[in-house]
Simulated scan of single mutants.
Amino acid sequence: MIKKIPKENMGTSNLGWLESRFHFSFAQYFNPSNINFGVLRVLNDDIIHPHSGFDTHPHDNMEIISYVIKGSITHKDSMGNEETLSRGEVQYLSAGDGIFHSEHNFQNEDLRLLQIWIIPPKRNLKKIYGSYRYKKEERINKLLNIVSSKKQNSKVTIHQDINIFVSELDQNKTLNYKIEENRQIYFVQIEGSCKINEIILEEGDALEITNDNNLLITSLNNSHFLFIEMKEE
């Protein structure tokens, strides 16, 4: 089954320095029937305006992935990590029993990123921070596995059993993805538009995909998307 979630049905927020689209209940947006999708707890499409950001704040027992779409993000945390990442690059944090961090846009242009929170398989697991600077050519007209579990082969690995794929497809290009039994997918159209098994997605739209075994992805124009593959609920 494929369920389309139009961007118009999602929660939104505008704090002046931060504009957000919430795929699931978060901050002031609360919908009791839209808390999570499997182990995916948060997916926020954030625009952080120049010279602003999230000051130091705590997290615990969550695995947090940031995928940069535009601009640059500067991360700093209580484990001593500090770095700046740009388009197509990935930052990840397994917060374990507690960590403090900040995220800022120190540049003169807007920063847009997807902030993804994954529920870990157990509480108080080992804290992890890392990043990877994927190249554009790795995702052009093919699927790039940017995050996986530690049992798999991505350059970024977390504790939970998931896979995150991204791609940038040129117009009229097609990709197939086979969904294994007892797995499900949350699909996000980041930029452009595409057709998934006859369902058209525009920028910002999403899909919940369950009890299906194949995705046929066709770009209607230059199309940038991400999907998270996980165990069925």
Results as ranks from 00 to 15, higher is better:
Ile179Phe: 01
Asn153Lys: 15
Ile199Cys: 08
Glu202Met: 15
Phe165Glu: 06
Ile158Leu: 11
Asp170Lys: 13
Asn172Ala: 03
Tyr177Phe: 07
Ser149Tyr: 11
Leu144Trp: 02
Ser167Lys: 03
Gln171Val: 15
Ile146Pro: 07
Ile199Ala: 09
Tyr186Leu: 14
Asn163Met: 15
Lys150Thr: 12
Ile164Cys: 02
Ile164Asp: 00
Ile200His: 09
Ser149Cys: 15
Val156Leu: 12
Ile146Val: 14
Glu198Ile: 14
Ile164Pro: 00
Tyr186Asp: 02
Ile190Phe: 03
Lys155Ala: 12
Glu203Phe: 10
Ser154Tyr: 07
Asn182Tyr: 05
Cys194Glu: 05
Tyr177Trp: 08
Ser154Phe: 08
Ser167Glu: 06
Asn197Pro: 14
Tyr186Gly: 01
Asn145Asp: 12
Thr174Asn: 02
Glu198Gln: 14
Ser154His: 08
Glu180Leu: 13
Phe165Lys: 10
Asp161Leu: 10
Lys178Trp: 07
Leu143Asn: 13
Leu201Tyr: 02
Val166Gly: 01
Glu181Thr: 13
Ile199Arg: 10
Val166Cys: 05
Thr174His: 01
Ile199Gly: 01
Asp161Gly: 05
Val188Met: 09
Lys155Gly: 08
Asp161Pro: 10
Lys155Ile: 11
Arg183Gly: 00
Gln160Trp: 10
Glu181Phe: 09
Gln189Asn: 13
His159Pro: 01
Asn172Pro: 07
Asn176Thr: 05
Glu168Tyr: 15
Lys150Ala: 13
Gln189Met: 12
Gln184Asn: 07
Leu143Phe: 07
Gln160Leu: 15
His159Ser: 12
Glu180Val: 04
Glu168Leu: 15
Lys173Glu: 09
Leu143Thr: 04
Gln189Asp: 08
Leu143Met: 10
Gly192Met: 06
Gln184Phe: 03
Gln152Ser: 13
Glu181Ser: 14
Thr157Met: 15
Tyr177Glu: 01
Ile196Glu: 03
Ile185Leu: 04
Lys173Leu: 09
Ile146Leu: 13
Gln184Leu: 05
Leu175Met: 02
Glu181Tyr: 05
Ile185Gln: 00
Ser193Pro: 11
Lys155Thr: 12
Ser149Met: 12
Gln171His: 06
Asn145Glu: 09
Asp161Phe: 06
Gly192Leu: 05
Glu181Gln: 05
Asn182Gln: 01
Ser193Lys: 07
Glu203His: 08
Lys195Pro: 04
Glu203Ala: 11
Gln152Tyr: 13
Val147Phe: 11
Ile158Gly: 05
Val156Trp: 03
Thr174Leu: 05
Lys151Cys: 12
Glu191His: 02
Asn163Arg: 15
Ser193Leu: 05
Ser193Cys: 07
Ile162Pro: 02
Ile146Asp: 02
